[in-house]
Write a protein that binds this DNA or RNA. Structure first.
Lengths: 187, 187
DNA sequence: ACTCAATTATTCCACGTGGAATAGTCGGGC
DNA sequence: GCCCGACTATTCCACGTGGAATAATTGAGT
Protein backbone atom coordinates (compact mmCIF):
# COMPACT_ATOMS: atom_id res chain seq x y z
CA UNK A 1 0.00 0.00 0.00
CA UNK A 2 3.03 2.25 -0.27
CA UNK A 3 2.32 4.59 2.65
CA UNK A 4 2.79 7.35 0.06
CA UNK A 5 -0.65 8.94 0.08
CA UNK A 6 -1.34 10.47 3.48
CA UNK A 7 -4.94 10.51 4.67
CA UNK A 8 -6.85 13.75 4.47
CA UNK A 9 -8.66 14.77 7.65
CA UNK A 10 -12.01 13.77 6.21
CA UNK A 11 -10.59 10.48 4.96
CA UNK A 12 -9.35 9.75 8.45
CA UNK A 13 -12.70 10.49 10.05
CA UNK A 14 -14.48 8.37 7.47
CA UNK A 15 -12.13 5.47 8.09
CA UNK A 16 -12.65 5.81 11.82
CA UNK A 17 -16.41 5.54 11.33
CA UNK A 18 -16.08 2.48 9.11
CA UNK A 19 -13.87 0.94 11.79
CA UNK A 20 -16.99 0.96 13.99
CA UNK A 21 -19.29 -0.59 11.39
CA UNK A 22 -20.03 -0.53 7.65
CA UNK A 23 -22.22 2.30 6.41
CA UNK A 24 -22.96 4.51 3.43
CA UNK A 25 -21.57 8.03 2.91
CA UNK A 26 -24.64 9.96 3.82
CA UNK A 27 -24.99 7.99 7.03
CA UNK A 28 -21.42 9.02 7.86
CA UNK A 29 -22.34 12.60 7.20
CA UNK A 30 -25.24 12.41 9.63
CA UNK A 31 -23.20 10.66 12.28
CA UNK A 32 -20.36 13.17 12.05
CA UNK A 33 -22.79 16.06 12.40
CA UNK A 34 -24.63 14.38 15.26
CA UNK A 35 -21.33 13.91 17.08
CA UNK A 36 -20.38 17.52 16.44
CA UNK A 37 -17.19 16.49 14.68
CA UNK A 38 -17.67 19.57 12.54
CA UNK A 39 -15.85 21.33 15.35
CA UNK A 40 -12.73 19.47 14.25
CA UNK A 41 -13.03 19.46 10.46
CA UNK A 42 -15.07 20.82 7.63
CA UNK A 43 -17.73 18.32 6.65
CA UNK A 44 -19.35 18.71 3.27
CA UNK A 45 -21.41 15.83 1.86
CA UNK A 46 -19.93 16.25 -1.61
CA UNK A 47 -16.40 16.00 -0.31
CA UNK A 48 -17.27 12.85 1.60
CA UNK A 49 -18.20 10.97 -1.56
CA UNK A 50 -14.93 11.94 -3.18
CA UNK A 51 -13.04 10.91 -0.08
CA UNK A 52 -14.68 7.48 -0.05
CA UNK A 53 -13.92 7.01 -3.73
CA UNK A 54 -10.27 7.72 -3.06
CA UNK A 55 -10.13 5.42 -0.06
CA UNK A 56 -11.55 2.69 -2.27
CA UNK A 57 -8.95 3.30 -4.98
CA UNK A 58 -6.26 2.92 -2.35
CA UNK A 59 -7.80 -0.32 -1.14
CA UNK A 60 -8.53 1.03 2.34
CA UNK A 61 -12.27 0.42 2.04
CA UNK A 62 -14.48 -1.88 -0.05
CA UNK A 63 -18.01 -1.59 -1.36
CA UNK A 64 -20.22 -4.05 0.48
CA UNK A 65 -23.20 -3.50 -1.79
CA UNK A 66 -25.83 -1.09 -2.98
CA UNK A 67 -29.46 -0.89 -2.02
CA UNK A 68 -32.36 1.32 -2.97
CA UNK A 69 -35.32 2.60 -0.96
CA UNK A 70 -38.30 3.29 -3.20
CA UNK A 71 -37.32 5.76 -5.85
CA UNK A 72 -34.44 7.38 -3.97
CA UNK A 73 -30.91 7.37 -5.28
CA UNK A 74 -28.97 4.19 -4.73
CA UNK A 75 -26.97 3.98 -1.53
CA UNK A 76 -23.54 2.44 -1.69
CA UNK A 77 -22.25 1.00 1.56
CA UNK A 78 -18.61 0.57 2.44
CA UNK A 79 -16.61 -1.40 4.94
CA UNK A 80 -13.02 -0.97 6.08
CA UNK A 81 -10.30 -3.39 4.91
CA UNK A 82 -7.32 -4.65 6.88
CA UNK A 83 -4.96 -2.24 5.20
CA UNK A 84 -7.55 0.45 5.94
CA UNK A 85 -7.34 -0.30 9.66
CA UNK A 86 -3.58 -0.18 9.47
CA UNK A 87 -3.67 3.09 7.54
CA UNK A 88 -5.97 4.60 10.15
CA UNK A 89 -3.66 3.73 13.02
CA UNK A 90 -0.61 4.95 11.11
CA UNK A 91 -2.38 8.11 10.04
CA UNK A 92 -3.43 9.05 13.56
CA UNK A 93 0.02 8.35 14.92
CA UNK A 94 1.70 10.43 12.24
CA UNK A 95 -0.69 13.28 12.76
CA UNK A 96 -0.06 13.23 16.50
CA UNK A 97 3.69 13.32 15.92
CA UNK A 98 3.68 15.83 13.06
CA UNK A 99 5.38 19.08 13.96
CA UNK A 100 5.08 20.67 10.52
CA UNK A 101 3.55 24.10 10.93
CA UNK A 102 0.06 24.75 9.65
CA UNK A 103 -0.91 28.16 8.46
CA UNK A 104 -3.84 29.77 10.23
CA UNK A 105 -4.84 33.06 8.63
CA UNK A 106 -4.97 35.21 11.75
CA UNK A 107 -1.20 35.59 12.31
CA UNK A 108 -0.94 36.77 8.73
CA UNK A 109 -3.62 39.33 9.40
CA UNK A 110 -1.72 40.46 12.49
CA UNK A 111 1.46 40.81 10.47
CA UNK A 112 -0.37 43.00 7.97
CA UNK A 113 -2.28 45.01 10.54
CA UNK A 114 0.28 47.81 10.41
CA UNK A 115 -1.32 48.85 7.11
CA UNK A 116 -4.43 49.98 8.96
CA UNK A 117 -4.99 52.85 11.42
CA UNK A 118 -4.99 51.85 15.09
CA UNK A 119 -8.69 52.47 15.71
CA UNK A 120 -9.74 50.27 12.80
CA UNK A 121 -7.49 47.49 14.07
CA UNK A 122 -8.90 47.73 17.58
CA UNK A 123 -12.46 47.67 16.29
CA UNK A 124 -11.80 44.60 14.16
CA UNK A 125 -10.09 42.81 17.02
CA UNK A 126 -13.00 43.57 19.33
CA UNK A 127 -15.31 41.94 16.83
CA UNK A 128 -13.09 38.91 16.68
CA UNK A 129 -12.84 38.76 20.44
CA UNK A 130 -16.61 38.63 20.71
CA UNK A 131 -16.69 35.71 18.29
CA UNK A 132 -13.95 33.81 20.09
CA UNK A 133 -15.61 34.25 23.46
CA UNK A 134 -18.78 32.84 22.01
CA UNK A 135 -16.95 29.79 20.72
CA UNK A 136 -15.31 29.29 24.09
CA UNK A 137 -18.70 29.35 25.76
CA UNK A 138 -19.94 26.68 23.35
CA UNK A 139 -16.94 24.49 24.06
CA UNK A 140 -17.54 24.82 27.79
CA UNK A 141 -21.17 23.85 27.29
CA UNK A 142 -20.11 20.81 25.26
CA UNK A 143 -17.72 19.77 27.97
CA UNK A 144 -20.41 19.99 30.64
CA UNK A 145 -22.65 17.89 28.39
CA UNK A 146 -20.14 15.07 27.96
CA UNK A 147 -19.12 15.20 31.60
CA UNK A 148 -22.76 14.74 32.54
CA UNK A 149 -22.87 11.57 30.46
CA UNK A 150 -19.86 10.20 32.32
CA UNK A 151 -18.10 9.20 29.12
CA UNK A 152 -14.45 8.16 29.42
CA UNK A 153 -12.14 11.16 29.50
CA UNK A 154 -10.03 9.98 26.58
CA UNK A 155 -13.03 10.47 24.30
CA UNK A 156 -13.22 14.21 24.83
CA UNK A 157 -9.65 15.34 25.48
CA UNK A 158 -9.84 17.39 22.30
CA UNK A 159 -12.40 19.66 23.96
CA UNK A 160 -9.88 20.41 26.67
CA UNK A 161 -7.20 21.18 24.09
CA UNK A 162 -9.41 23.49 22.07
CA UNK A 163 -10.45 25.40 25.16
CA UNK A 164 -6.86 25.87 26.24
CA UNK A 165 -5.81 27.19 22.85
CA UNK A 166 -8.83 29.43 22.50
CA UNK A 167 -8.21 30.77 25.99
CA UNK A 168 -4.61 31.60 25.12
CA UNK A 169 -5.68 33.39 21.95
CA UNK A 170 -8.28 35.44 23.78
CA UNK A 171 -5.81 36.41 26.48
CA UNK A 172 -3.22 37.51 23.93
CA UNK A 173 -5.76 39.56 22.04
CA UNK A 174 -7.01 41.31 25.15
CA UNK A 175 -3.50 42.25 26.02
CA UNK A 176 -2.73 43.35 22.47
CA UNK A 177 -5.77 45.60 22.02
CA UNK A 178 -4.98 47.10 25.40
CA UNK A 179 -1.42 47.88 24.32
CA UNK A 180 -2.59 49.49 21.09
CA UNK A 181 -5.33 51.54 22.72
CA UNK A 182 -3.12 52.91 25.46
CA UNK A 183 -0.21 53.58 23.16
CA UNK A 184 1.92 50.80 24.62
CA UNK A 185 2.75 49.99 21.02
CA UNK A 186 2.98 53.00 18.84
CA UNK A 187 1.02 52.79 15.67
CA UNK B 1 -15.58 45.28 -7.47
CA UNK B 2 -18.33 43.37 -5.66
CA UNK B 3 -16.42 42.44 -2.51
CA UNK B 4 -17.52 38.88 -3.39
CA UNK B 5 -14.18 37.21 -3.95
CA UNK B 6 -12.19 37.19 -0.72
CA UNK B 7 -8.43 37.37 -1.00
CA UNK B 8 -6.43 34.21 -0.45
CA UNK B 9 -3.53 34.52 2.00
CA UNK B 10 -1.00 34.52 -0.80
CA UNK B 11 -3.07 37.03 -2.76
CA UNK B 12 -3.05 39.31 0.25
CA UNK B 13 0.71 39.09 0.71
CA UNK B 14 1.27 39.71 -2.98
CA UNK B 15 -0.95 42.78 -2.88
CA UNK B 16 0.89 44.03 0.17
CA UNK B 17 4.19 43.78 -1.68
CA UNK B 18 2.82 45.58 -4.72
CA UNK B 19 1.58 48.31 -2.38
CA UNK B 20 5.26 49.00 -1.65
CA UNK B 21 6.34 49.09 -5.29
CA UNK B 22 5.73 47.36 -8.62
CA UNK B 23 7.57 44.12 -9.22
CA UNK B 24 7.43 40.78 -11.00
CA UNK B 25 6.25 37.50 -9.42
CA UNK B 26 9.62 35.91 -8.90
CA UNK B 27 10.89 39.03 -7.21
CA UNK B 28 7.94 38.75 -4.83
CA UNK B 29 8.88 35.17 -4.16
CA UNK B 30 12.42 36.17 -3.25
CA UNK B 31 11.29 39.05 -1.07
CA UNK B 32 8.80 36.91 0.82
CA UNK B 33 11.43 34.27 1.49
CA UNK B 34 14.01 36.88 2.50
CA UNK B 35 11.52 38.34 4.95
CA UNK B 36 10.71 34.89 6.32
CA UNK B 37 7.05 35.32 5.54
CA UNK B 38 7.01 31.60 4.92
CA UNK B 39 6.45 31.38 8.64
CA UNK B 40 3.00 32.81 8.06
CA UNK B 41 1.93 31.18 4.81
CA UNK B 42 2.93 28.56 2.31
CA UNK B 43 4.87 30.16 -0.50
CA UNK B 44 5.24 28.24 -3.72
CA UNK B 45 6.41 30.05 -6.85
CA UNK B 46 3.85 28.30 -9.03
CA UNK B 47 0.98 29.35 -6.82
CA UNK B 48 2.20 32.93 -6.89
CA UNK B 49 1.79 33.19 -10.66
CA UNK B 50 -1.74 31.88 -10.44
CA UNK B 51 -2.50 34.28 -7.63
CA UNK B 52 -1.26 37.25 -9.67
CA UNK B 53 -3.33 36.11 -12.64
CA UNK B 54 -6.42 36.08 -10.49
CA UNK B 55 -5.68 39.45 -8.96
CA UNK B 56 -5.39 40.82 -12.46
CA UNK B 57 -8.72 39.31 -13.53
CA UNK B 58 -10.32 41.01 -10.56
CA UNK B 59 -8.75 44.32 -11.50
CA UNK B 60 -6.71 44.56 -8.30
CA UNK B 61 -3.39 44.67 -10.14
CA UNK B 62 -2.26 45.67 -13.63
CA UNK B 63 0.58 44.56 -15.86
CA UNK B 64 3.07 47.40 -16.16
CA UNK B 65 5.07 45.69 -18.87
CA UNK B 66 7.34 42.83 -19.75
CA UNK B 67 11.07 42.80 -20.13
CA UNK B 68 13.65 40.19 -21.01
CA UNK B 69 17.23 39.71 -19.83
CA UNK B 70 19.27 37.91 -22.45
CA UNK B 71 17.67 34.61 -23.25
CA UNK B 72 15.81 34.19 -19.98
CA UNK B 73 12.06 33.87 -19.80
CA UNK B 74 10.14 37.11 -20.04
CA UNK B 75 9.37 38.82 -16.76
CA UNK B 76 5.97 40.37 -16.35
CA UNK B 77 5.80 43.18 -13.81
CA UNK B 78 2.67 44.21 -11.98
CA UNK B 79 1.51 47.22 -10.05
CA UNK B 80 -1.39 47.61 -7.65
CA UNK B 81 -4.55 49.48 -8.70
CA UNK B 82 -6.75 51.72 -6.58
CA UNK B 83 -9.33 49.03 -6.07
CA UNK B 84 -6.43 46.73 -5.23
CA UNK B 85 -5.36 49.03 -2.40
CA UNK B 86 -8.93 49.14 -1.16
CA UNK B 87 -9.24 45.36 -1.38
CA UNK B 88 -6.05 44.95 0.62
CA UNK B 89 -7.26 47.18 3.43
CA UNK B 90 -10.66 45.49 3.48
CA UNK B 91 -9.13 42.05 3.32
CA UNK B 92 -6.82 42.66 6.27
CA UNK B 93 -9.61 44.17 8.32
CA UNK B 94 -11.96 41.27 7.60
CA UNK B 95 -9.29 38.74 8.41
CA UNK B 96 -8.56 40.46 11.72
CA UNK B 97 -12.24 40.45 12.61
CA UNK B 98 -13.04 36.95 11.31
CA UNK B 99 -14.03 34.58 14.07
CA UNK B 100 -14.83 31.63 11.81
CA UNK B 101 -12.97 28.60 13.07
CA UNK B 102 -10.13 27.17 11.05
CA UNK B 103 -9.36 23.51 11.20
CA UNK B 104 -5.86 22.58 12.34
CA UNK B 105 -5.23 18.86 12.06
CA UNK B 106 -3.83 18.26 15.53
CA UNK B 107 -7.10 18.50 17.50
CA UNK B 108 -8.52 15.90 15.12
CA UNK B 109 -5.56 13.65 15.84
CA UNK B 110 -6.15 14.15 19.57
CA UNK B 111 -9.79 13.23 19.18
CA UNK B 112 -8.80 10.02 17.39
CA UNK B 113 -5.94 9.18 19.73
CA UNK B 114 -8.14 6.84 21.74
CA UNK B 115 -7.73 4.33 18.88
CA UNK B 116 -4.09 3.85 19.81
CA UNK B 117 -2.46 2.31 22.89
CA UNK B 118 -1.22 4.76 25.49
CA UNK B 119 2.49 4.17 24.97
CA UNK B 120 2.26 4.81 21.22
CA UNK B 121 0.37 8.05 21.88
CA UNK B 122 2.96 9.23 24.39
CA UNK B 123 5.80 8.43 22.03
CA UNK B 124 4.15 10.31 19.16
CA UNK B 125 3.46 13.29 21.37
CA UNK B 126 7.05 13.37 22.58
CA UNK B 127 8.18 13.56 18.98
CA UNK B 128 5.80 16.39 18.34
CA UNK B 129 6.90 18.19 21.47
CA UNK B 130 10.48 18.10 20.30
CA UNK B 131 9.46 19.66 16.99
CA UNK B 132 7.38 22.37 18.65
CA UNK B 133 10.17 23.30 21.04
CA UNK B 134 12.49 23.67 18.09
CA UNK B 135 10.07 25.99 16.35
CA UNK B 136 9.70 28.04 19.51
CA UNK B 137 13.45 28.43 19.71
CA UNK B 138 13.52 29.67 16.12
CA UNK B 139 10.79 32.20 16.84
CA UNK B 140 12.72 33.47 19.84
CA UNK B 141 15.83 33.83 17.71
CA UNK B 142 13.86 35.77 15.10
CA UNK B 143 12.52 38.08 17.74
CA UNK B 144 15.98 38.81 19.09
CA UNK B 145 17.09 39.52 15.51
CA UNK B 146 14.36 42.07 14.83
CA UNK B 147 14.72 43.64 18.25
CA UNK B 148 18.42 44.14 17.54
CA UNK B 149 17.49 46.09 14.40
CA UNK B 150 15.25 48.37 16.45
CA UNK B 151 12.38 48.04 13.99
CA UNK B 152 8.99 49.41 15.10
CA UNK B 153 7.14 46.94 17.29
CA UNK B 154 4.05 46.92 15.12
CA UNK B 155 6.04 45.23 12.37
CA UNK B 156 6.73 42.08 14.34
CA UNK B 157 3.74 41.65 16.65
CA UNK B 158 2.97 38.43 14.84
CA UNK B 159 6.12 36.89 16.29
CA UNK B 160 4.81 37.60 19.74
CA UNK B 161 1.47 36.02 18.90
CA UNK B 162 2.99 32.88 17.44
CA UNK B 163 5.24 32.42 20.45
CA UNK B 164 2.32 32.77 22.83
CA UNK B 165 0.25 30.19 20.97
CA UNK B 166 3.11 27.78 20.57
CA UNK B 167 3.90 28.13 24.26
CA UNK B 168 0.30 27.33 25.18
CA UNK B 169 0.33 24.27 22.96
CA UNK B 170 3.56 22.98 24.43
CA UNK B 171 2.30 23.49 27.97
CA UNK B 172 -0.90 21.61 27.24
CA UNK B 173 0.94 18.74 25.66
CA UNK B 174 3.37 18.42 28.55
CA UNK B 175 0.48 18.24 30.95
CA UNK B 176 -1.40 15.80 28.73
CA UNK B 177 1.44 13.32 28.24
CA UNK B 178 2.04 13.49 31.98
CA UNK B 179 -1.60 12.63 32.69
CA UNK B 180 -1.52 9.68 30.30
CA UNK B 181 1.79 8.32 31.56
CA UNK B 182 0.82 8.47 35.21
CA UNK B 183 -2.66 7.12 34.62
CA UNK B 184 -4.36 10.42 35.40
CA UNK B 185 -6.48 9.66 32.34
CA UNK B 186 -7.22 6.03 31.91
CA UNK B 187 -6.53 4.67 28.50
C1' DA C 1 -56.01 17.34 1.09
C1' DC C 2 -52.42 20.50 -0.21
C1' DT C 3 -48.32 22.86 -0.31
C1' DC C 4 -43.83 24.44 1.27
C1' DA C 5 -39.76 23.40 3.51
C1' DA C 6 -36.48 20.34 5.14
C1' DT C 7 -34.28 15.97 4.60
C1' DT C 8 -32.26 12.16 1.98
C1' DA C 9 -28.64 10.96 -1.21
C1' DT C 10 -25.66 11.73 -4.80
C1' DT C 11 -23.20 13.92 -8.84
C1' DC C 12 -20.60 17.41 -11.00
C1' DC C 13 -18.01 21.61 -11.90
C1' DA C 14 -14.97 25.53 -10.66
C1' DC C 15 -11.33 26.97 -8.02
C1' DG C 16 -6.88 27.15 -5.50
C1' DT C 17 -2.81 24.66 -4.20
C1' DG C 18 1.40 22.12 -4.68
C1' DG C 19 4.71 19.88 -7.16
C1' DA C 20 6.97 18.63 -11.33
C1' DA C 21 8.75 20.00 -15.68
C1' DT C 22 11.29 23.18 -18.41
C1' DA C 23 15.04 25.87 -19.71
C1' DG C 24 18.43 29.23 -19.68
C1' DT C 25 22.26 31.50 -16.82
C1' DC C 26 25.65 32.31 -13.32
C1' DG C 27 29.38 31.15 -10.04
C1' DG C 28 32.86 27.98 -8.06
C1' DG C 29 35.95 24.38 -8.07
C1' DC C 30 39.34 21.30 -10.62
C1' DG D 1 38.52 26.29 -19.88
C1' DC D 2 34.90 23.17 -18.45
C1' DC D 3 31.41 21.04 -15.84
C1' DC D 4 28.08 20.83 -12.07
C1' DG D 5 24.93 22.55 -9.18
C1' DA D 6 22.24 26.42 -7.72
C1' DC D 7 19.49 30.16 -9.08
C1' DT D 8 16.24 32.61 -12.22
C1' DA D 9 11.68 32.53 -14.06
C1' DT D 10 7.66 30.56 -15.63
C1' DT D 11 4.14 27.02 -17.19
C1' DC D 12 1.28 23.13 -16.54
C1' DC D 13 -1.08 19.17 -14.56
C1' DA D 14 -3.15 16.43 -10.80
C1' DC D 15 -5.49 16.57 -6.68
C1' DG D 16 -8.73 17.86 -2.97
C1' DT D 17 -12.27 21.04 -1.53
C1' DG D 18 -16.58 23.45 -1.56
C1' DG D 19 -20.68 24.71 -3.44
C1' DA D 20 -24.37 24.23 -6.66
C1' DA D 21 -27.51 21.25 -9.04
C1' DT D 22 -30.62 17.45 -8.98
C1' DA D 23 -34.37 14.87 -7.56
C1' DA D 24 -37.29 12.22 -4.73
C1' DT D 25 -39.54 11.89 -0.13
C1' DT D 26 -41.18 12.94 4.38
C1' DG D 27 -43.27 16.10 7.71
C1' DA D 28 -45.49 20.29 9.39
C1' DG D 29 -48.65 23.56 9.17
C1' DT D 30 -53.29 25.48 7.18
Amino acid sequence: MLKSTALTPLGMSALALLAERPMHPYEMYQLLIARKEDRLLKIRPGTLYHALGRLEEHGLVQVTGTERQGNRPERTSYRITDSGSAALRDGVRELLAAAEPEYPAFPLAVSQAHNLPADVVVEALDQRLAGLRERLTELQASERAVRAKALPAKIWVDLDFQQTMLGAEIAWMENFTERISTGGIDW
